[in-house]
């Protein structure tokens, strides 16, 4: 039995296929302007990539901010539930998740059966989200994907005091003007964003082992900064960004069994 999960985020759309409790494959594309088309596209492309016929897919669960715009999904579920399910599917030992995505960051606590017992999300502010890092990468003229590595070279991280993304950006620009090292500024940015995310983790009383998910998990510098704030190491895999879609696919297979 094959089931699919579609996660429409603010920046990227993700799809995952699960066959009999085994992950088949995943795919990530840019969401773009049209959420409806993004859902269709990511699903079609993944089916093509895996050679699975659409008629073979028993159930689809949609999640993410665009979850309501995936017309072909059987059910929409929140990314909190999907990330919890995805992390438990990949590693049943996980008891907490720190998910840093494009427009929000969240902390999720799980029990030993993988059920969500508590969660916290950032308030209406981009500090501590992927968008914050994106704005800073732009100001520093560095590729977003390179930010993590560059920041890790810092010996003397700068201190960013503004929480507001817009103010932090002007703070960064004045640091550039004062010719502070790029790696130091980046390390300061990671530290500032990590401090915001760590508050959410403490609110939900996350305890080791915790998985970091979402696109920002690929940023090693940000992950290290977060580990420093939390006082323990985070696990992350190559499928951190697709975790929500994987969870959605697992939930879809439960849905399918249930019916």
């Amino acid at each position: 039995m094959i089931c699919a999960g579609i996660d429409i985020g603010s920046i990227t759309a993700k799809a995952a296929l699960v066959r009999d409790q085994e992950l088949v494959d995943t795919l990530v594309i840019k969401t773009g302007y049209d959420h409806v088309k993004a859902g269709e596209r990511v699903f079609e492309q993944l089916l093509k990539k895996t050679g699975v016929g659409r008629e073979k897919v028993c159930a689809v669960v949609a999640t993410g901010y665009g979850r309501a715009s995936v017309g072909f999904a059987d059910k929409a579920m929140t990314e909190i539930l999907c990330h919890g399910t995805g992390a438990h599917f990949i590693d049943p030992a996980i008891r907490g998740i720190v998910d840093v995505g494009g427009q929000d960051s969240k902390a999720i606590r799980l029990d030993d059966t993988g059920q969500v017992t508590d969660f916290a999300m950032n308030d209406k502010c981009a500090a501590g989200t992927g968008r914050f890092l994106e704005v800073m990468a732009n100001a520093l003229d560095v590729e977003l994907a390179q930010m993590g590595e560059v920041g890790l070279q810092s010996q003397n991280p700068s201190k960013i005091s503004s929480i507001c993304t817009v103010f932090a950006e002007s703070e960064v620009i004045s640091m550039i003007a004062r010719q502070q090292k790029r790696e130091d500024i980046i390390a300061g940015i990671h530290d500032s964003a990590a401090a915001r995310v760590a508050i959410l983790a403490r609110k939900t009383k996350l305890a080791d082992p915790v998985m970091m998910t979402g696109g920002v998990a690929k940023n090693t510098g940000m992950r290290k900064a977060l580990e420093k704030h939390l006082g323990f190491e985070l696990t992350t895999g190559r499928l951190a960004q697709e975790n929500g879609a994987i969870g959605a696919a697992v939930l879809a297979s439960r849905l399918s069994v249930g019916s």
Binding site: Y65, M77, T78, E79, I80, L81, D104, Q115, V116, T117, D118, F119, M121, K124
Partner: peptide, 20 residues
Amino acid sequence: NFSQSQVETRIDAFMEIVKQ
């Protein structure tokens, strides 16, 4: 000071936990 889609996601996720 209100963001509907953010509040909606939180309520949906909260209700998933309540139901559970």
